[in-house]
Nucleic acid binder design. Sequence first.
DNA 1: GAGTTATATGTAAGTCCTGACATGTCAAGT
DNA 2: ACTTGACATGTCAGGACTTACATATAACTC
Lengths: 174, 174
Amino acid sequence: MLAGMSLRIALLGLLSAVGPASGYDLAKKFEHSLNHVWQAGHTQIYPELVKMAADGLVEAEAEGARGRKTYTITAEGKRELHEWLAEHDPSMTIRSEPALQAFLLPLLDDPDQAIKVVERIRARYLARLEQLDCLPAEGSFGRYALSLGRAQVRTGLAWAEETLADLRKRRTPQ
Amino acid sequence: MLAGMSLRIALLGLLSAVGPASGYDLAKKFEHSLNHVWQAGHTQIYPELVKMAADGLVEAEAEGARGRKTYTITAEGKRELHEWLAEHDPSMTIRSEPALQAFLLPLLDDPDQAIKVVERIRARYLARLEQLDCLPAEGSFGRYALSLGRAQVRTGLAWAEETLADLRKRRTPQ
DNA sequence: GAGTTATATGTAAGTCCTGACATGTCAAGT
DNA sequence: ACTTGACATGTCAGGACTTACATATAACTC
């Protein structure tokens, strides 16, 4: 099993959880339930499903309306999915733009400028938290990931608020 | 200013913080101080520095030993760096393999299997936290990012421990 | 003097991912 | 009849990133 096949795994997981679905459906699910875990647009999903069908992990059923194609996970697909979940050591690779901005904060000598940057980061985290809070229970399927995602965003928000307090204290030390 | 130039920004930030450095130095800094924020290997860094030099963001000085080249940030480079930090709305894109595994957990009917998966995730977070705790103060330059990184990892760890407790309760409900 | 490790730089193939473009259907309102 | 918006699928160019390969010097150890 090769590394870096997370998009496949995510798609297989969705198909396994919600049953047969089209590429369009899967793109929507990505937006609404995998959003805090993994991201992918339809431009990545459609070609990937074709490759997965070629590899025997899913089966396509060309259906009626509007050229809609329904994909179903195969036994082989389920096997790959379970194997990945059971065996794969998850990569800790991180690429976080908010954290990169946090890293660079000391470059700004003017505390007011730094405050503006952290306030923008805070607003982003807050918007995302509200978005997560609006997520449907989704049959409670993604519950573990949702609690992890929420906790991570709340952590970012808390960091922003602590950092703002710290920067404001520095600005007016009297 | 285009999106997705974070590698450039990270390199400019390092050059701005620690002064002139070679590609090799920058690769080491990535490992030791940007690790919890952004990741890049030397195979990505060397070509990027060449492009950045072509764009006038850094200046290369071909130096002595072992073909070492020293790069210095230019005024234009500093301008770009500050502009990005001040203006760029950070992307919230997330791709977390641990979170993806968390998402898929309900697929495992056997609680013992789920426990194994979460224990592996927990071990990974723990290893990373120890790694972060060993980071030098680095002139305290990356202090904000370090506190954010640590908090994020601790959150992951706490999630793993709560989830383990939950799964163990389900296994033996008596 | 030989061997090992850390220093130091690169290339190339291939995959992953984004953003822009392109096409057409169906349902509902006006 | 017309328009708008949600549905539905795709391609393509280019940039980001990984993995494997390739090379050579300097310092240290045995």
